[in-house]
């Protein structure tokens, strides 16, 4: 961690599967932008020097070839159409319109609030416990219904998100109060979290490390402090963390039993996928 304020240029290291493609698009766009700007700049500088007023000089009246100005338009238009068709639409579909199927990706529920991130893991049974706004209190931030059997093995984590490397995970996000926005710079994607609706965001982290979550939508007084961490870990480390969380919640004996149940369930054929829509 860098303690000194620096003068970095560029983009932070990427840590997500689709990041490399997005970064190369970002580079492409900036190369084109700089090229256009340099061409304009050189032309402008040339004009300012070549056509400066001279004593007794006279400007050219006629402006022939007005179609010339359509050439940059056409080039820009062609470039943009190519960008949209070749990359824009497919990438958008991949990142935003589709999420990985439930079986292949870890489902994590995120309930944002002023000014914290509440992550809810479904636990070994793969089913999220029921939430009820009436149950929300200082000690039960997301209003989890303890009477729901599915809630028993749910793991809650405030501000710290643990995920295994190399496996997709999907955040099912909602907000209790105002609009927030989940941003992790190294993951290259973000999404508003709106009260009253569920938005999704999926990542496949591919570099182990600790990354910072920031809120990217002004949410009030403590907006700046609404930070958290993503820990991208080896699958074994992730499992160990999950086990520790379960033990903290249920005690060692119950935690082992729950994990055992889940293992036998998973090996049984015809297991129905149960997740919240």
């Amino acid at each position: 961690m860098n303690e000194e304020p620096g003068f970095a240029m560029g983009i932070p290291p990427v840590a997500v599967s689709y990041g490399a493609q997005l970064d190369s698009l970002m580079t492409l766009l900036h190369v084109v932008m700089v090229a256009i700007f340099v061409i304009w700049g050189v032309y402008l500088a040339y004009c300012l020097w070549a056509y400066r007023a001279r004593p007794g000089g006279r400007a050219v009246y006629h402006t022939a070839g007005e179609r010339a100005s359509f050439i940059p338009d056409a080039l820009v238009l062609a470039f943009e159409v190519w960008l949209i068709l070749a990359f824009g639409i497919p990438i958008w579909a991949n990142l935003k319109q589709e999420v990985p199927p439930v079986g292949e990706s870890l489902q994590i529920r995120l309930v944002a609030q002023q000014f914290a991130w509440n992550f809810q893991y479904a636990g070994p049974d793969g089913t999220f416990g029921r939430r009820d706004v009436a149950l929300i209190s200082a000690s039960n931030a997301i209003g989890l219904d303890d009477k729901d059997p599915a809630a028993k093995d749910d793991v809650l984590s405030i501000n710290n998100l643990h995920v295994p490397v190399g496996k997709p995970f999907t955040l099912l996000m909602t907000s209790k109060d105002v609009i927030h926005d989940f941003q992790v710079t190294n993951f290259r994607n973000k999404q508003d979290i709106v009260p009253g609706m569920t938005t999704t965001l999926w990542f496949e982290p591919n570099v182990i490390g600790k990354y910072e979550i920031g809120c990217a939508q002004l949410c009030g007084l403590g907006h700046t402090q609404m930070v958290g961490n993503v820990f991208v870990e080896e699958p074994a480390d992730y499992e160990a963390w999950m086990k520790t969380q379960l033990e903290l919640k249920l005690g060692t004996a119950d935690a082992s039993r729950v994990l055992e149940d889940a293992r036998s369930q998973a090996s049984a054929p015809g297991r129905a996928e149960r997740t919240e829509s």
Binding site: L22, L25, M26, L83, I91, T185, K190, A216
Partner: peptide, 12 residues
């Protein structure tokens, strides 16, 4: 204005 890159740059 281009959505794939705006995902990263939005609100920065």
């Amino acid at each position: 204005g281009y959505a794939p890159t705006d995902l990263y740059l939005h609100d920065t």
